[in-house]
């Protein structure tokens, strides 16, 4: 009966999917390696937002766990890549 939320969810899904496409374009095109790491960072945050939106749509709490895991692994990945670009080594002795 109150049909506003499904529309908003669809809108948010489309917007975030478009945002992921933009980030993917920058990932493929980026002139420097930093641009690609930045695009990958954006891509995982956007993916997390997408999963959270899907969680709202399906009303399931499992999507929250997926989003938390994406946040954890995404941070480790992009921090390691940024550290590698900065120092040439991830874990320094």
């Amino acid at each position: 009966m109150n049909g506003m939320l499904p529309w908003a969810i669809s809108f948010a899904l489309i917007a975030v999917a478009l945002a992921m496409i933009f980030a993917a374009i920058r990932l493929l095109r980026g002139p420097a390696a930093e641009d690609r790491v930045l695009a990958l960072d954006t891509l995982y945050v956007n993916g997390m937002i997408l999963v959270l939106t899907l969680g709202i749509q399906f009303g399931s709490r499992f999507y929250f766990d997926i989003a938390l895991l994406i946040a954890l692994f995404g941070f480790v990945g992009s921090a390691a890549m940024a550290k590698f670009l900065l120092r040439g080594e991830v874990i320094e002795p």
């Binding site: 506003m4 933009f22 980030a23 930045l38």
Partner: peptide, 22 residues
């Protein structure tokens, strides 16, 4: 319904604009 829709729409738009900035 109204508040959730507003939050979702603004969140989606902000994400889109941020990635457009890329």
């Amino acid at each position: 319904d109204l508040l959730g829709s507003l939050l979702l729409i603004s969140g989606g738009l902000l994400t889109l604009i941020g990635s457009l900035g890329l």
